[in-house]
Simulated assay, not measured.
Amino acid sequence: MPAKTDIEQLRAREERMVAEVWNEGDMDVLEELTHEDYVGHWFSMEGGDTDRDGLRMFIEETRKGFSDFHMDIEFMVAEDDMITVGFTTTGTHDGEFMGIPPTDVNPGETPGIMVHRVEDGKVVEGWATWDALGMMQSLGLVPEQFRITDFLETGVTMARQGIMRRTADDD
Rank of each mutant, 00 (worst) to 15 (best):
W127Q: 04
P111K: 08
S138N: 15
W127G: 02
P111T: 11
R147L: 12
L139S: 00
I148L: 15
L141A: 09
V124M: 08
G112C: 01
M136G: 00
D120I: 00
A128T: 08
V142E: 09
D120K: 12
M136N: 10
A132I: 12
L141G: 10
Q145W: 10
R147Y: 09
V142Q: 05
P143C: 01
H116C: 03
L133H: 01
D120T: 02
W127F: 10
V124D: 02
M135D: 07
V124R: 06
D120M: 08
R147C: 11
Q137W: 03
T129F: 05
I148G: 08
W130M: 12
G140P: 06
I113C: 08
M135N: 09
V124K: 01
E125Y: 05
M135Q: 15
H116F: 11
L133Y: 01
M136L: 15
R117L: 07
G140H: 00
M114D: 13
W130T: 06
V115A: 08
V123A: 13
G112Y: 05
K122A: 12
S138V: 06
A128Y: 00
F146H: 13
W127D: 08
V118F: 09
F146C: 01
P111W: 09
A132C: 12
H116N: 12
R117G: 08
W130L: 11
E125T: 05
D120Q: 11
P111Q: 07
L141E: 04
A132P: 01
